[in-house]
Design a binder for these strands. Structure first.
Lengths: 243, 243
DNA sequence: CGTTGTCTTGACTGTTATCAATTGACGTGG
DNA sequence: CCACGTCAATTGATAACAGTCAAGACAACG
């Protein structure tokens, strides 16, 4: 069903428009990308450390993450990815993965060949610039996480992460009104924040106890945005969101 | 002195050649970049969080770093930069800095306008690809540091950092024979690894006591490469070094 | 030769990990 | 419909790693 695939590529346009304006031609070129759609259950690897795949994956529905494993079951999650994101864009320049990409929830994914993406970028310099910016924004998010891992307390860092995810989701129309989906387990949260699952649980209780956020049924409710921003020293500039 | 400036831009060629081959034309175009050379003492900011500068800086001699400050004097260093690196390349796409760049040692820096770099990239697609790859390699290094901050012990992480820096320095001809310059203070090391200066000191003593590395007079000696690789689970693939 | 920054050490504290067990929610098959 | 299995969330007890504070040693530099 070509039309379904074209329809679904709109999430990519919506995401790119949070970074810069698209011309009608650019939107059309994106809609015309050849894509293979796959539906995966939660916790499935999309690409593995060491793979050489030849295509990029675009998240259409659900959440994904990038992560890497260490001995003794240690895992670090580097980023969360929501609809519109291309977690493995750098495969275009570095074909061998140095980490893995996996789903966090049931998810639908569009696979787009490197060839098609390279062609798209080559023929649309405006899109090339937006993809560049997108890659640099991803790097800025990595730095924000590093700052938290290295220098923020567990409490501050979790508050910071929630602020970030809320704004990213809202930018693509998936959140609003002080609440957003947060379909990740406490283990996932711990692997992103460098914490044990037990400690994540306790920090969440503290956060709830202080009427800052509550997380239930995979929904995050931000009950005191100002306080969260203050506690976590959150400055949204790094997200590079238009508006 | 134009010839001195041209001469000095060779460090950039040397660095880029660790990523991909350069044609004579590309080398020439790089040598012809208009650059302003500055000499800075240790601990000087080159660009500050929030700045909008209009130019990129290329490290010619000495070391630099990218960092960000938090309240109560907390600092996280995101990356170390050695001769040939352009720490703020992303200024090309994101003109407002979301972190700072500073010297770690006495350093000489070449300032190159965004304009000139954009022109260079636009007229040399091969260089554009190499700069893309370079940006993605930087992101891979950030992820390696994240993995260490989140999931490695202080001991493992310091060993990992030393492995990384040794290979990066060797790739541009600044190290060899199991030793390399390491002109950073223990405080700097701590700010990179998310540790206190006191703990850095103790971990260094352990490392030395186990005959793994020694760090004296700003020189790092790797006494047991195999053991370091094993302990820190070091895999150099992420550095993307040609060879 | 004193000043300054860096390194080193000891004592104590605190955050977070680990281990182990329990509860609760959900889906499946008998 | 209930018994069971599974996975996620929760709790308590204890331990380990790393931070903080404070003081002193050392070295480089003017």
């Amino acid at each position: 069903m070509v039309s379904a695939a074209e329809q679904s590529l709109n999430v990519l346009c919506r995401k790119l428009e949070t970074i810069g304006a698209l011309t009608p031609q650019e939107r059309q070129a994106i809609a015309g990308l050849p894509a293979t759609v796959r539906v995966l259950s939660a916790g499935q690897d999309i690409a593995r450390d060491g793979d050489r795949s030849g295509q990029c994956c675009l998240v259409l529905q659900g959440w994904a993450c990038r992560y890497k494993l260490l001995s003794r079951g240690r895992r670090q999650i580097f980023s969360f990815h929501i609809p519109g994101d291309i977690p493995d864009l750098e495969g275009l320049q570095r074909p061998v993965m140095d980490h893995s990409v996996a789903t966090l929830t049931k998810a639908t994914i569009a696979c787009i060949s490197h060839e098609a993406l390279r062609e798209l970028i080559a023929t649309h310099p405006g899109l090339a610039a937006i993809f560049w910016r997108s890659a640099f924004i991803d790097a800025a998010v990595l730095r924000a996480w590093m700052l938290g891992l290295g220098r923020r307390s567990a409490f501050e860092n979790m508050a910071h992460l929630f602020c970030e995810l809320y704004l990213k989701l809202r930018a693509v129309g998936l959140a609003g009104d002080g609440r957003c989906p947060m379909p990740v387990t406490q283990v996932d949260l711990g692997d992103a924040l460098g914490l044990s699952n037990v400690h994540v649980n306790r920090v969440l209780q503290t956060l709830r106890g202080q009427k800052l956020v509550s997380l239930q049924n995979s929904t995050l409710v931000l009950e005191d945005w100002q306080a969260l921003v203050r506690i976590s020293e959150f400055d949204p500039a790094y997200l590079g969101l238009e508006r």
